[in-house]
């Protein structure tokens, strides 16, 4: 990253469900991070840690309970006119996890892709609209004959491509990909990931990539955030995170990835994580601290010193 222009700033984002009731759920609880223009930020964590909710709150599928999401300095949430929302919707798009559930089975592929084009009035004529749909299909590796088919006629990988084409239809700058490859085969996963990478280069896109497959996340992301119970535990450049994970939860998560290497698998030791192992005092201030350049860890003052010492000693070796 040469120029570090902040595209999106998330400040103390909170997303609670059932507020005030006994079953209040704090899905996202005080999240702060930035996404720079042109980068891919990966968000990982186990199911229920709030990573999908984070994505959905950022794009305003949920109204945030508290905190701010600033896109190019402007707040995404709060009262807005229809025109403002429309303008914002063009800049930010989402790719969903399940390519079977996220496409309307009663709409033709051309209708699915052109919906955004119609809403934002991006096509001058019917011919122009069809031309746009066809070129989008070709961009994602399908052909123009596919435009008149229905979603059920496609395989999982192809459907995910349709989902990507739909997201691209309005020329967005920022795409939230919520587990876009989890439902796909290994060989198809590689295709979709390569496609996302290619598109990023061509169209100068910024991604928030949400997933639980850590090896793919490392491959596609510049920086990775690890979430646990609605909070970020660690945020670091991908290489750094894998080489020197600091937070015990990150270590536990990394130790759980199955690798296609039988020797490694035989000798693997799985590290369990128990949040109570920190023994935080009530008085202690637990927050994100920068342990190494651009490497943030959620920790107390005492842990901060410890992590810093360990990190430095690792560097020397």
């Amino acid at each position: 990253m040469v120029e570090e222009e902040k595209l999106l700033e998330v400040k103390n984002l909170k997303q609670y469900f059932n507020v005030g009731k006994t079953k209040e759920v704090r899905a996202v609880d005080g999240l702060t991070f930035d996404i720079y223009k042109g980068e891919t930020l990966g968000l990982v964590g186990e199911s229920g840690c709030g990573k999908s909710t984070t994505g959905r709150s950022i794009i305003r599928l949920y109204e945030a309970t508290d905190g701010e999401v600033l896109y190019q300095g402007k707040n995404v949430h709060g009262k807005k006119s229809k025109a403002e929302i429309k303008a914002f919707n063009r800049k930010m798009q989402m790719i969903f996890q399940d390519p079977y559930a996220s496409l309307n089975p009663r709409m033709k592929v051309s209708q699915i892709i052109a919906e955004g084009i119609d809403i934002h009035g991006l096509a001058k004529s019917k011919k122009d609209r069809m031309e746009k749909v066809c070129s989008l299909l070709e961009t994602v590796g399908l052909n123009r004959e596919h435009a008149n088919r229905y979603p059920h006629e496609f395989s999982g990988g192809q459907r995910q491509r349709i989902g990507i084409a739909r997201a691209l239809a309005v020329d967005p700058e920022f795409i939230i990909a919520d587990e876009p490859i989890s439902a796909l085969d290994v060989s198809i996963q590689a295709q979709v990931v390569n496609l996302l990478k290619k598109l990023q280069e061509e169209k100068d896109l910024t991604y928030l990539f949400i997933a639980h497959d850590l090896s793919m996340v490392k491959y596609i992301s510049d920086r990775i955030g690890v979430m646990f119970a609605g909070k970020l535990m660690e945020l670091a450049p991908s290489e750094d995170l894998y080489r020197s994970p600091m937070h015990p939860y990150t270590k536990s998560l990394l130790s759980a990835i199955p690798l296609p290497d039988p020797d490694y698998e035989r000798s693997r030791i799985r590290i369990a994580y128990d949040p109570s192992q920190h023994h935080y005092d009530e008085k202690e201030e637990v927050k994100m601290r920068e342990v190494a350049p651009a490497h943030y860890v959620y920790c107390s003052e005492e842990e901060f010193e410890k992590y810093k010492k360990n990190y430095n000693s690792k560097e020397k070796v």
Partner: peptide, 20 residues
């Protein structure tokens, strides 16, 4: 060979993933 090459290992760098 194709199956094995299409999986990124944790030390795969920036090169494109192999696709069958």
């Amino acid at each position: 060979w194709g199956l094995i090459s299409s999986m990124p290992s944790l030390d795969t760098d920036d090169e494109e993933l192999y696709v069958i």
